[in-house]
Simulated scan of single mutants.
Amino acid sequence: MIDKVLVATTNKGKLKEFKQLLSKYGIQVLSLEDMPEKFEVEEDKETFLENAIKKAREYAQFYKIPVIAEDAGLEVKALNGYPGVYSARFYDIEFGGKQPLEENKDKANIKKLLRLMEGVEDREARFVSVVVFYNPEDFGLWTEGYCYGKITDKPIGDKGFGYDPIFVPEGYLVTMAQLTPEEKNKISHRGKAVRKLVEKLQKLL
Rank of each mutant, 00 (worst) to 15 (best):
D3Q: 13
V7Q: 06
T9P: 03
L15E: 08
L15F: 06
L21W: 04
I27H: 02
Q28P: 00
E33Y: 04
D34M: 02
E40K: 01
L49Q: 10
A52H: 04
I53C: 02
K55I: 01
A56H: 08
I65Y: 00
P66I: 13
A69P: 11
A72C: 12
L74V: 15
V76W: 06
K77D: 13
S87E: 07
F90Y: 14
D92N: 15
E94G: 10
E94L: 12
F95G: 08
G97E: 14
G97F: 13
Q99W: 12
L101E: 13
L101G: 09
E102N: 13
E102H: 12
D106L: 12
K107A: 07
A108F: 09
A108N: 09
N109D: 07
N109H: 10
I110M: 14
L114V: 12
M117A: 09
E118S: 11
E124Y: 05
R126L: 11
R126A: 10
F127Y: 10
F127H: 07
S129Y: 11
F133H: 03
Y134P: 01
N135M: 09
G140L: 06
G140A: 06
I151G: 02
D153K: 12
D158T: 11
G160P: 02
F161N: 08
D164P: 02
D164K: 03
P165S: 08
E170Y: 12
Y172W: 13
L173M: 14
V174K: 09
A177Q: 02
T180H: 04
E182Q: 06
K184H: 07
H189M: 03
R190G: 00
R190Y: 08
R190A: 03
G191I: 05
G191T: 04
A193Q: 05
L197E: 03
V198G: 09
V198I: 14
E199H: 00
E199C: 00
L201V: 11
L201P: 07
L201D: 09
